[in-house]
Nucleic acid binder design. Structure first.
Lengths: 202, 202
DNA sequence: AGGTAACCATACCGGTTGGTATACTCGCAG
DNA sequence: CTGCGAGTATACCAACCGGTATGGTTACCT
């Protein structure tokens, strides 16, 4: 299963395919706006960042922001959508480097640890959900889709839904313990737990 | 270990003792303010709720709020502190009802599921951390302390730090998958994973 | 030549933010 | 009787919020 993950072919599970669907094209000012918004949203939170600051950071104006994206809510949703896109691309590319389901599962936690080494604010999707709640914000479906995608990844890697659920819980727990818990050993402890879950002994 | 958890005695680990330290007393208007703030903060998020709304919901004034708590930040920290206090009291009382470490570990996830059945916005500490970041907000130490306390609980129940880490990761993951992931089966899947972690087979 | 999409600059809008100031009433303890 | 802590009521503050309006300037396409 999953013999090559670098490109889309008939062996790639259908549930994982939306990874490679291209995002809508952006103008140059639009790109700068989305880039600035992404770092600001992630570092300070969605509600804490105003549209004025985003426009100023992007070297453009609020007018352009609303011409391109329509609303702040839509910009937030697009920020999460692009972040999910990049994370999936990065993860699948790394997973394609090794063979065997067990090695791939363990590699997920290596990639996560490295990724979080530079992105110290934890899971952008959990953070956004914490701020937006379960209302009708357009970003909420993006959050749910991201969690469902990770679950499907573990199910696909192992071929066992019970094991996939176990690994997914460890994955989400690692993110929380790393950030809110401020425990730098979380990823290493998670790999130990993964070996137990895989039946490779403690 | 942990023969009785209903009261504080020499067999209760020192790390779990802060549970029973009483919270500072409040005046009548102060109680109403903290009560109103707690439900509003949890349901809508910390940043989304203004002090005007809190004062109005409590049937009092902003003046009284600042006389009692000094600042909104202090009120947020106290909200989390009291919530941690109540959760620990509730959890320890339930754990005292059963015997044996394995039953107690599994019961943690039962209690969590029931608790989350009524509190649908997930972990208040993860949510607050998502909004406040790793800055110098007075609530951040409360969040870290709560995560450390849960980790210590699992370590104490099992007597095995590696197993405690595994169970803690499953615990935090369950909260995320239940809420941001909107997967109602998360707690049941977690109990299956717990049995694997405990070596009781899949 | 003319149209159009993208962009920049600036000003404005009503509403809300955390926090402070002033002045008054009540109950209680010395 | 007096002082004081607690509470109520209202007004105020500068700063910021998301969003809109107006007007002018490029650059490219037909």
């Amino acid at each position: 299963m999953l013999p090559t993950l670098t490109r889309l072919d008939e062996s790639t599970p259908a549930a994982l395919r939306p990874v490679l669907q291209p995002l809508p094209p952006l103008t140059s000012a639009g790109t700068r706006l989305l880039e600035a918004a992404s770092t600001l949203f992630y570092d300070r939170g969605v509600r804490a960042v105003g549209v004025d600051l985003i426009a100023e950071s992007a070297g453009t104006t609020k007018k352009t922001l609303y011409d391109r994206f329509g609303s702040k809510d839509a910009l937030v949703a697009l920020y999460l959508l692009r972040r999910a896109h990049r994370w999936r691309e990065h993860l699948l590319a790394r997973l394609a480097e090794v063979d065997g389901p067990d090695q791939r599962v363990l590699l997920v936690f290596d990639v996560l640890e490295t990724w979080m080494g530079t992105q110290r604010r934890g899971c952008a999707f959990v953070n956004a959900y914490a701020e937006l709640g379960d209302g009708d914000h357009p970003a909420v479906p993006v959050v749910r889709a991201e969690k469902a995608w990770m679950r499907t990844l573990f199910d696909t890697l192992t071929g066992d839904p019970a094991l996939g659920a176990h690994l997914h819980l460890l994955y989400e727990g690692t993110l929380v313990v790393l950030t809110a818990g401020a425990n730098p050993l979380a990823a290493e402890e998670a790999r130990g737990a993964v070996r137990v879950a895989l039946g490779r002994g403690a």
